[in-house]
Nucleic acid binder design. Structure first.
Lengths: 213, 213
DNA sequence: AGCAAATGTGAACAGTATTCAGATAAGGCC
DNA sequence: GGCCTTATCTGAATACTGTTCACATTTGCT
């Protein structure tokens, strides 16, 4: 890759031959790398280096580089799910609109506060459900939470719009918002360094659509 | 990367020492590669090989690998712009809703029909406006087209929603739809192999929001 | 204590981006 | 035509990468 003066230093000396919790250390190091550069800039060797271990060691914990990235994605989904759960529990306006707001706000906030995690969560790689079953399961759980809301909305509208279509579109909406913010275009065009103002106005529109359908 | 038996054959013999139009040949080869695998699977050497040239030759046409990808992105934006222009011209229901439909349909169709191009267009890399000015300019042109529509919509609503917020949200919406389709989740959850049905229902919702705002 | 399984090391292989000096062709100028 | 500057391409070199392998070291179980 870039021929910058990457510190090729040997891994830090460990006192013990065995690391202790290499698996998590690798996941953490990976996350740190993605955050600093890009998911494409992650090299297994650099990850191993940061964990204080040689390049071959990770293969005792992950089938290959993709499996390591999948573990990061899985961790991301788990964190998102937990956050969504908390957000729903904490909502003091538990009517439909209030919960839609809470969920949407929570989703976008997560993506914007953890762009590294978020980017890894959406990769074509995880399309193979058998190979990456864990990623799929956590992802499904999040979507399910959304479906519960749109089922209500759909029923309230007398079934004019079916719940799946509604769920797909809300998902696309917030995903697009988060992605375009993280990838740059929106952040650049708004000039702001916080997505909050735009997010709140967007939630207004979103609620408008839901109750008006 | 993968240790599959990649054909490491030497570049095809050319009659002429100079290629003729290496630059475009490289862009085309890159596109073909992205389409077959992923943007991460593009190697400059393989691109050069397919163009029948050695690994160092591309450096006379592009500063580095990123510059080559940027050229692909730029070409993508140009194609999208042209398509949007045609779509607007061809619309036989030129009222606001009709044009929003046309533009949205055209945007998502492009992204779904050219996932390779589309994926390259949205990379954080191009954030540096000075380095990748051409990419930015073409991207801006597309957004401008959208702003014209939302300006009308905003005015029609008596300014209840400002045109930029509206533009951002419509963009996020269609971008999310296209991305989630291309990355897999939506394609998988709908079970369909065409986005058309979902797209049309989504456009219904989109129009509902616009005229109802 | 002893042994099998889990976890680490080093060296190897094939592939990658990028640079550089030198070879070859094209195009303008006399 | 001849000549020379510039653009383009080659080959070899450097420093990376993912992955595999035989082997070393611990740990946990009996």
């Amino acid at each position: 890759m870039t021929t910058q003066g990457r510190k090729t230093a040997a891994p830090r000396k460990r006192r013990t031959y065995h690391h202790g919790d290499l698996r998590q250390a690798l996941v953490d190091a990976t996350l740190a790398l993605i955050a600093k550069e890009d998911v494409g800039a992650v090299s297994l060797r650099e990850v191993a280096r940061r964990a204080g271990v040689t390049a071959a060691a990770p293969y005792h914990h992950f089938r290959d580089k993709n499996a390591l990235l999948a573990a990061v994605a899985e961790e991301g989904y788990r964190a998102l799910n937990q956050r969504m759960e908390e957000a729903l529990a904490r909502t003091r306006a538990p009517d439909l609109a209030g919960r839609v707001r809470a969920l949407g706000r929570c989703y976008v906030s997560f993506a914007v506060e953890h762009p590294a995690h978020y980017r890894v969560m959406f990769r074509e790689e995880w399309g193979d459900e058998e190979k990456y079953a864990a990623v799929h399961e956590e992802g499904m759980r999040a979507f399910q939470r959304l479906l519960e809301l749109t089922a209500e909305a759909s029923a309230a509208s007398g079934g004019k719009v079916d719940m799946e279509t509604l769920a797909f579109n809300i998902w696309a909406w917030v995903h697009g918002l988060a992605s375009l913010w993280n990838e740059g275009p929106l952040r650049k065009k708004t000039g702001s360094d916080s997505i909050s103002p735009l997010l709140e106005r967007s939630l207004d529109l979103l609620v408008m659509l839901i109750v008006g359908s």
